[in-house]
Design a binder for these strands. Structure first.
Lengths: 125, 125
DNA sequence: CTTGACCCTCACACTAGTGTCAGGGTTTAC
DNA sequence: GTAAACCCTGACACTAGTGTGAGGGTCAAG
């Protein structure tokens, strides 16, 4: 199938399909006229790519194990586990950082409220 | 004082000081030779800018209330409170999203472990 | 044989703050 | 008078995936 059909089937933009190819995630054949020709397997492949992108992995990371998970069960690919572990660690660090900022913001908001309250008290004296 | 001294005093790079000026956060005078000349107040001003940047606010948001908080107590500036509230909401949304991804990753890791365990059981049969 | 719907490559834009370099002027101290 | 240490502006790079547009080829239906 051609790129437009694959885009329609998967919901992924043509632009993104070409980008995935550039990143080594897809390797369609080429027709004589230069058009990309995708096998039926490509549809699954694109969905798999999307799945991992939605888990926050980069195209580079996905490229590292995509061949394996397409051929075998995910559990069989030893590359996957440490990447998941690392990603979780990154996410936890980000959440930690965000919580830190959030607490600071909440403290400041509370200070503002307290300040205003005492202003009012001052006025009503 | 000149820009190098302000950078040394505050720990903020010269590049950043010039960027803050471009964003309307700092407005140093100019000497006859074109050099920026900062008042002593600029040091506090830069620290205040850094404080809000570290809370995750953009230079544009900071520009919206910086004049006020430099002149008054933060609690007096009505622009600040809704920005804090909005920022907290954004952070909560991000945390939510990150937790969602994290749960997916953890589930997948667990599946992998389960899968491997049953493989082993298969082998030891 | 033309129109419209495809396809191709190349390249810039976007976020937002910072680093870094080029090319050039000023000032200070030796 | 020259070298070192400042300062200036302007511009590109970075992240990472996607949108968008230019300029142009291909193909099928009318």
């Amino acid at each position: 199938m051609k790129i437009g059909e694959l885009a329609a089937r998967t919901g992924v933009s043509i632009r993104s399909l070409r980008y995935y190819e550039q990143q080594g995630l897809l390797t369609p054949a080429r027709n004589e006229n230069g058009y990309r020709e995708y096998s039926v397997l490509a549809e699954d492949q694109v969905r798999t790519i999307q799945l991992y992108l939605n888990l926050g992995l980069s195209t580079e990371q996905i490229a590292g194990f995509l061949h394996c998970v397409l051929k075998n069960k995910e559990a069989f690919c030893t590359e996957v586990f440490p990447i998941f572990r690392q990603k979780i660690a990154e996410i936890e660090a980000q959440i930690h950082q965000l919580n830190h900022i959030k607490r600071n913001l909440e403290e400041r908001m509370q200070s503002i409220l307290d300040e205003r309250k005492s202003e009012e008290a001052e006025e009503n004296k």
